[in-house]
Simulated scan of single mutants.
Amino acid sequence: MFDFRQLRYFIAVAEELSFTRAAQRLHISQPPLSQQIQALEQDLGIRLLDRDKRNVTLTEPGRLFLEQARQILAMADDARIRVTEAAAGFSGQLRLAYTVSVSFHPALPQTLLLLGQRAPNIRLWLSEMYTEPQFAAVRSGQIDVGFVRDVPSHEDDARALRLDIIDREPLLLALPSGHRLADRPSLELGEVAGEPFVIQPRELAATLYDRLVRLASKAGFHPVVRQQAQQINGLLALVAAGIGLALIPASMQVVKLAGVSYVPLVDPDAYLLLAVASRTENPAPVVLQFLETVTDAKKALGL
């Protein structure tokens, strides 16, 4: 069966119509070139070239084979490039999940923008998913990486997963604009003890729910939850309606909803983690490429 070297030799002779010029182009001597062309013709059982002492011409089967030889080498080169890119993590499929609150943080769009620039051949599949389900999904292979808001609470998850921390995002208190503390530059959570809160159900967003409870306990009270909303951005409408206060990550300040003011909390524990979770063992090249891109995006954002 003919090989790629023979195809390259044949193409050179067919294009130059001269064994001498083809040998010079290929940087080989003429005898082995002639031998390889003869071996190719014997393997095919077809004369590809008519030659005499002065001229070399393509036979009709030779013209057809020239087209096919070019296509075969082009496909081989393309396959080589694709395999090399896949091995380096510049192509392939990446399944990425993120919590709704992460969509407001600049790390997500910055990472995806940078990834698209450096590895445009990666096929990206995005889905919204709460933090705890993401840990299970990464472990099972349902997703490759996830933007999460907490560390794993189960030992099995902690052992099986790699966590790359991006940010410890400050938490703010969202208050109705007419609230007595709405114009303050900052406040302590204890200053709103006894006032109603709006929050997501714990079964959906345990991280933020538990953080509010811990911060409130630290301030000496237990939060009174008046109303719940399925999505974190839905909390802001409830705040604007004067139904209660909400604890939110600072990146949600980009939501300029009339009737809502944002005030930072004076507490070193008032933050929400942002990290990327991936499998510890045998990460795919595309995952390693993504994690490197996350690091570069973090640096670009000054985080």
Rank of each mutant, 00 (worst) to 15 (best):
R139Y: 04
D144E: 08
D269R: 14
T280Q: 15
L171F: 09
A205G: 07
N233Q: 13
V13G: 04
T20V: 12
A160N: 04
Y262C: 04
R25M: 06
L64R: 15
D150H: 09
T111N: 03
V213P: 04
V83I: 05
L171K: 07
L108I: 08
R279I: 04
K299I: 09
I243P: 06
V13A: 05
L172F: 10
Q93S: 11
A182C: 06
N121Y: 13
D150E: 12
P201S: 02
I232R: 09
L187T: 07
H105D: 09
T111R: 05
F19N: 07
S153N: 03
L114M: 14
P264I: 12
P32V: 05
P223Y: 07
I122L: 02
A206M: 02
L17K: 09
L172I: 11
P61G: 09
L265Q: 03
L208E: 07
L272G: 07
S278A: 06
D269K: 14
Q110K: 15
L273Q: 09
R51V: 08
D78V: 05
R25L: 11
R54E: 15
Q117C: 04
P176L: 02
Q36D: 09
A39Q: 14
Q227C: 04
A12T: 10
F290A: 01
I166P: 02
E203R: 15
L212E: 06
L58Q: 11
R82T: 11
G141C: 10
E169Q: 15
G141M: 12
Q6F: 13
P264F: 12
S177G: 10
L66M: 10
G62D: 06
